[in-house]
Design a protein around this nucleic acid. Structure first.
Lengths: 235, 235
DNA sequence: AATCAAAATATTTTCGAAAATTTTATTTTA
DNA sequence: TAAAATAAAATTTTCGAAAATATTTTGATT
C-alpha cells in the first residue's frame, strides 16, 4: 500500500491559494502592494495559470483586488472597513448564536466544551514572542467561535460568518497590539462566560456577552490601527 | 478618435465569466451538470486559462462547485438551500433597510423613486411570453431592492445582500411559476407600499412589509420548486 | 457470470512561449 | 523648460501542446 499516502492530493493551484492566503493574512505583503506574477511564480513554485486562479479566488473572497489588464494587488485596510466588518460580524454572529442556543444538541455542547478546552491549553502554551504559537492560538480562538454558532442550522449564515472572519483577521495579525496581552483583559474569562451562558441556554445573556466581547476587540483593533496610521503619516 | 470606443476593454476571462454567469442563472445548464472545459471552450470561444479563472470565480460566488482533479459542476438547487437563502436574505435586508431609513438622504429617496418608476414602466411593457422582457423586469426588480437598502452605510451588508440575491435568483428563472403572474398578487402595490413606508421613514412598517414581501415570494418559490421536484420524480 | 488488473480513452491541470497591454524612458517639438 | 510623440521595457493575459489524473473499456482469471 505504497501510494496510499497521496490520497488528498492538493492540486498546485490549491497549494498556491493556501500559501498566498496565509501570507496575506500574516501580513507578509503590504496592503495595496501589487502582486507581480513573476515574483509569485518564484515564491510559490507554480506556473501562471494556477497562480492566476488562486488570485482570482482570493479576489472573490476579498483578500486581493484585481483590475483588468493591470493585475492584482493586496486588498487595502482601512478604519472604515474595520469598523464595518466588526459591526456586521456582531450583527450576524449574534443571530447565529441565538439560533444555535435554540437548536443546539449534545454534539453542539460537546464542540463548545472541547474547543474552549483546546483554546485554554493553547493559551497556557503560547508565548508573545513565538509567532507560531500565536498563530495556533488564533486558530483555536477561531475554532471556539465557529463552535458557538455551529448549530444555527443555516449554511448561509455560516458562510457569511466565515467570510467576515477572514475580513477581520488581517487587522490583528501584523504584530499589531497583541490582543491577549492587554492587561485589562482576561480573554479566557470572557470566553468562559460566553460558553456558560450558551450552554445554560441563556440567549439574551450570551448575546450580550458576545457583543461586548466583539465591541472590546473592535475598540482595541481600531485604536491599534489608527495608532499605526498615525505613525505611518509622521515617521 | 477612432479607437476611443475600446475604453472599457473586458478581458477574455471576464467575458467568459459574464457569459457563464448569465447562462447558469438562466438555467441553460441543469443543476449538478458537469461543466466540461472542451465544451465551454467552444461555447465561449476562449482558451483553458481564462475559462478556468471564470469557473474558479463562479465557484467562489457559489454558482458552481469544484472538486480537485474532477472539474466543475453547476451548483445544485435544493429546497433547504432555497429556504435558507430567503430567510437569511430577509434577516440581512431588513437590517440594511432599517439603517437606510435612519441615514438616507435626498439622493437615496431619489434612487427609490426612480427605480420604482422604472420597475412600473417595465412591468407595463413586459409580457409573460417574452423572455427578454421578463429578464429586464427581473433586473428592474433587483434595482429597486438595491436602491431601498443603498443608504445602509455598510459595504459589507451590501456585498452579503448581493451574494444572497445571486443565490436566490436561479430559483425563479427556469420558466418556473412566473411570480408576477400570480392572480392573488399585485407586485406593484406591494412595492409601492414598501417605498411609501421607507420614504415616510416608518422603519417598523417598512420592515414588516418587506418581510411579508419576501415571505410570500419564498412560499411561492418553495411551492413551485417542490412541484418541480415531484414532477421530476414521477415523470 | 463476477472480479480484478491492465490498457485505452477522456478530462483536468500545468507549463512556458507568444500576443496584447500598460508603464517607463527617450526623443522630438513648440 | 514643458508637453506631446515615440520607442523600449515590463507586465499581464492568452493560447495550445504536454503532463497528470480520472474514467471507461477490454481481457484474463476464478
Amino acid at each position: 500500500m505504497g501510494k496510499a499516502l497521496s490520497k488528498s492530493t492538493k492540486s498546485r493551484g490549491e497549494q498556491a491559494y493556501s500559501l498566498l492566503r496565509h501570507e496575506i493574512i500574516r501580513g507578509a505583503f503590504a496592503p495595496e502592494q501589487p502582486l507581480r506574477l513573476a515574483q509569485l511564480q518564484e515564491r510559490c513554485g507554480v506556473g501562471f495559470s494556477p497562480l492566476r486562479e488562486a488570485l482570482t479566488r482570493l479576489a472573490a473572497e476579498g483578500l486581493v483586488t484585481s483590475e483588468a489588464m493591470r493585475g492584482f494587488r493586496v486588498a487595502p485596510l482601512s478604519l472604515d472597513d474595520l469598523r464595518d466588518t466588526m459591526e456586521t460580524r456582531t450583527f450576524v454572529e449574534t443571530e447565529a448564536l441565538r439560533r444555535s442556543i435554540m437548536r443546539g444538541d449534545d454534539d453542539w455542547e460537546g464542540r463548545i466544551v472541547s474547543s474552549l478546552h483546546a483554546l485554554g491549553r493553547q493559551n497556557e502554551r503560547s508565548h508573545p514572542d513565538d509567532p507560531d504559537s500565536l498563530a495556533a492560538l488564533e486558530d483555536r480562538h477561531r475554532d471556539f467561535h465557529v463552535a458557538l454558532i455551529s448549530a444555527s442550522g443555516s449554511r448561509r449564515l455560516e458562510q457569511i460568518i466565515d467570510n467576515l472572519y477572514l475580513g477581520s483577521v488581517r487587522y490583528r495579525m501584523p504584530g499589531l497590539s497583541n490582543l491577549s496581552s492587554n492587561p485589562a483583559r482576561d480573554l479566557m474569562i470572557e470566553h468562559g462566560a460566553i460558553s456558560d451562558a450558551a450552554l445554560g441556554r441563556d440567549a439574551p445573556l450570551a448575546v450580550e456577552l458576545l457583543t461586548a466581547h466583539y465591541c472590546l476587540t473592535a475598540e482595541l483593533l481600531i485604536q491599534a490601527h489608527s495608532d499605526r496610521l498615525g505613525r505611518a503619516a509622521k515617521g
